[in-house]
Amino acid sequence: MTDNGDQKKLLELIDDIPIAMLTTFGGDGPRSVPMARQEVEPSAELWFITARETAHVRAIQAAPQVSLTFSSRDSWVAAYGRAEVVEDRDKLGELWTTFAEAWLPGGPEDPNATLLRVDLDHGEYWDTPGGKVASLISFAKTKLTGDTYDADHGSVDV
């Protein structure tokens, strides 16, 4: 069951974590690469800038289903959806950052630069608001009471 509060929380957590591990399932089997997430749309579209001539782009063209994992000190997200290579120079220019330039020094005009759009189908998150102190308190509570670790958890069909 989709809960709009859970979907909003999922997208907020993703928006706060800039790097994802993108796993593709093309002809060579599962393969994961780190990707810098550029934008999170309220409609659960995620945008990435990438080089066109890569194994992950070829894998997506062969099989568009992908998995994404995001991790920070106090929250974790696992999601899956369908990826698509998008040729849109205006959108590429809009999303371009100096971080992308480290991999594609020719800028948004580089013919090897392209976009990946991932439309999420499902996501799951675990969040420990309050950071390190809240986590330590929750761990101590677990040891003292025998209760399970206290984390905010949600599962969302997007």
Rank of each mutant, 00 (worst) to 15 (best):
Q7K: 07
K8T: 15
L10H: 05
L11E: 00
L11S: 02
L11K: 00
I14F: 01
I14R: 00
D16A: 04
I17S: 04
P18H: 06
M21C: 15
F25Y: 09
F25P: 03
G26V: 08
G26A: 11
R31W: 07
S32G: 11
S32W: 10
S32K: 07
M35P: 09
M35D: 04
A36R: 04
A36D: 13
R37F: 13
E39K: 08
P42M: 11
S43P: 11
A44Y: 03
E45S: 12
L46H: 03
W47D: 02
F48E: 00
R52V: 08
E53A: 11
T54C: 12
A55M: 06
A55N: 15
H56K: 11
V57E: 12
V57F: 14
V57I: 13
V57T: 04
R58M: 14
Q61W: 15
Q65G: 10
S67I: 12
F70D: 02
R73Y: 15
E84N: 08
E84F: 14
V85W: 13
V86L: 09
V86G: 11
R89S: 09
K91M: 06
L95D: 04
L95F: 03
L95Y: 04
W96D: 03
T97G: 06
T98W: 07
A102S: 11
W103S: 12
L104W: 00
L104E: 01
L104R: 01
P105T: 08
G106H: 00
P108G: 06
P108T: 15
D110Y: 04
P111V: 02
P111N: 06
P111D: 06
N112D: 10
L115E: 03
L116V: 10
L116T: 01
V118I: 15
V118R: 04
D119K: 12
D119Y: 10
L120M: 12
L120V: 05
H122C: 09
H122M: 15
E124D: 08
Y125C: 14
W126Q: 04
W126S: 07
W126E: 07
D127S: 06
D127F: 13
D127E: 13
P129F: 05
G130Q: 04
G130I: 04
V133H: 12
V133M: 08
L136W: 04
I137Y: 11
I137L: 15
